[in-house]
Design a protein around this nucleic acid. Structure first.
Length: 494
RNA sequence: GCCCGCAUCGUCUAGCGGUUAGGACAUCACCCUUUCAAGGUGGUAACCGGGGUUCGACUCCCCGUGCGGGUACCA
């Protein structure tokens, strides 16, 4: 490449009608709020569009290399597969900003040459003092442009001294306006905007420079990001213009709040996607739930798969007010999606939660729990009896029944279970009904009490999956052993 | 401090000048039921306040209030 110092590649005919991107900064765990932004970008690209993943690793202080792979794994888990980006490549590679440094340098040089930016040698200490003073006198905190009018001699002298140097954007006079796809017409007075640092003294660009260069070079057509970026948008617009590029469409989506209406964070409980995965939320439910935090179809439908969302989501229906993250609604949707899974599929998803279960046990377990759980991590507790000896006490077994009634019913139940499970419940209920016939209070209540004895004998718990399913999971021998053991405890007076 | 954004049931939301303000979660009651669920039926519950504009405002405009965001050589 024999490009001049101020030359940059040109973005031409890239695939996809719309090109949207998710550009996280790998500094920690992937936050659920960021996932929503990723989801919106993914969906808004539409079936005809392209979804790109770009790694914004320009903050060397906070950079965490492991995060890159973690983010990718979580996005894949959610089904947010990128058409271009790390690992999959694409026409705009590389998609990692730390590998694109020369591009930002060239852009900075071009801005410097055109007078849209200037070198600044002010120390961090001076900047801090400046801000403190401005704040103290009630002024907006902004750089005072001390380095704006440095002569070339002064610049060379400072460089010769080895003073750390940054490149600052020279914010021009006038106004910055755009039509935000979510918030509508926006207008800022440039005089309110600071001369932002574009290139840091370590040679890395700031977000402002890097994302403008990359979004342009990568042919990004729509930038969808959280409102926290709204106030710095004028800087970006100025950069596009100074570089001779036309800006993409902009859409600022509202924040996701915690129950206290503060920006969702760690202290609200789970903030990382990985935690949701570990708690047994299905990616389908997380996606469905997050989509409705700021979007709705305008109909009364509420269950959406990712592919439906990608074909249905549109800017016009994006919400402009912030949404509170409501865990109860997520739980509900998770239950809905769990019940939509076939027992076989649910069994496969259950694997990480049931290390002690055999391969053959997973599907039957899935079948017995699918209508009673909202999260996969509830399952180990529901079926714990299968791998533990319940060993219930006699008083727990008999409950409000007389000891002899409990004993007699259990004794009658033993042969029922031995007879195989085909009509198990029918037979058991018939047995209970006849035993309850002489009951003074309600026969129905008596049947319940009787069935309860069997439940506790088998599982040690008052609450369990249906008895026939429990019996099948345990197997005939174990059922027989547990019934006889309980029988033994109910022997004699009590 | 300065700049900016937002505002319908507790929560997510529908509404885009005229509606008994709709749905879902949660909640309450009942039904179903071998427990727990799931499912069914029904109920409680909202337009932040004040001015305008208009024959008519939840809807449009202004002010206030509240909440939030930004104000970095972090993104």
């Amino acid at each position: 490449m024999s490009e001049g110092p101020a030359s940059l590649p040109t973005a031409i005919s890239l695939p996809g009608r719309r090109r949207l991107r998710f550009a996280p900064s790998p500094t920690g765990a992937l936050h659920i709020g960021n996932v929503r932004t990723a989801l919106f970008n993914y969906c808004l690209a539409g079936p005809e569009g392209r979804f790109l993943l770009r790694i914004e690793d320009t903050d060397r202080e906070r950079y965490r290399p492991e995060s890159v792979l973690e983010y990718q794994a979580e996005l894949r888990w959610l089904g947010l597969l990128w058409d271009e980006g790390p690992e999959v490549g694409g026409p705009c590679a590389p998609y990692v900003e730390s590998e694109r440094l020369p591009l930002y340098r060239k852009a900075a040089d071009r801005l410097l040459d055109g007078g849209a930016a200037y070198p600044c040698f002010c120390s961090r200490e001076r900047l801090e003092e400046l801000r403190a003073a401005q704040r103290a006198s009630g002024l907006p905190t902004r750089y005072d442009r001390r380095c704006l009018h440095l002569s070339s001699d002064e610049v060379s002298r400072l460089r010769a001294e080895g003073r750390p140097e940054v490149v600052r954007l020279r914010m021009p006079e006038g106004e910055s306006a755009w039509n935000d796809l979510v918030l509508g017409p926006q207008r800022f007075d440039n005089a309110e905007i600071d001369d932002q640092v574009l290139l840091k003294s370590d040679g890395y660009p700031t977000y402002h420079l890097a994302h403008v260069v990359d979004d342009h070079l990568m042919g990004v057509t729509h930038v969808v990001r959280a409102v926290e970026w709204l106030p710095s948008t004028p800087k970006h617009l100025v950069l596009y213009r100074a570089l001779g590029w036309s800006p993409p469409e902009l859409a600022h989506v509202p924040l996701v709040l915690g129950p206290d209406r503060q920006k969702l964070a760690k202290r609200h409980g789970a903030a990382a996607v990985s935690e949701y995965r570990e708690m047994g939320y299905l990616p389908e439910a997380v996606v469905n739930f997050l989509a409705f935090l700021g979007w709705s179809p305008g109909t009364e439908e509420e269950v959406f798969a990712l592919s439906d969302l990608r074909s249905r989501m549109a800017f016009e229906r994006l919400q402009s007010s912030p949404a509170v993250f409501d865990g109860q609604r997520l739980d509900y949707l998770n239950g809905v999606w769990i019940r939509r899974l076939s027992p076989g599929e649910l069994g496969r998803r259950l694997r990480p939660f049931l290390p002690q279960a055999s391969a053959e046990q997973l599907e039957p377990i899935a079948e017995m729990v699918r209508e009673r759980i909202r999260r996969l991590d509830e399952v180990p507790g529901l079926v714990a009896f299968a791998w533990a000896d319940p060993d219930p006490s006699a008083s727990l077994l008999q409950g409000s029944l007389s000891r002899s009634a409990a004993h007699d019913f259990l004794q009658g139940a033993v042969p029922v279970f031995q007879g195989g499970s085909a009509q198990l419940m029918e037979t058991l209920r018939a047995l209970a009904s006849s035993a309850a016939a002489s009951s003074t209070d309600g026969a129905k209540a008596e049947v319940r009490r009787l069935m309860r004895v069997v439940r506790i004998a088998l599982t040690g718990q008052e609450i369990s999956p249906p008895l026939d399913a429990c019996a099948r999971l345990l197997g005939p021998q174990e059922v027989d052993r547990r019934l006889r053991s309980a029988l033994g405890k109910l022997q004699g007076p009590g």
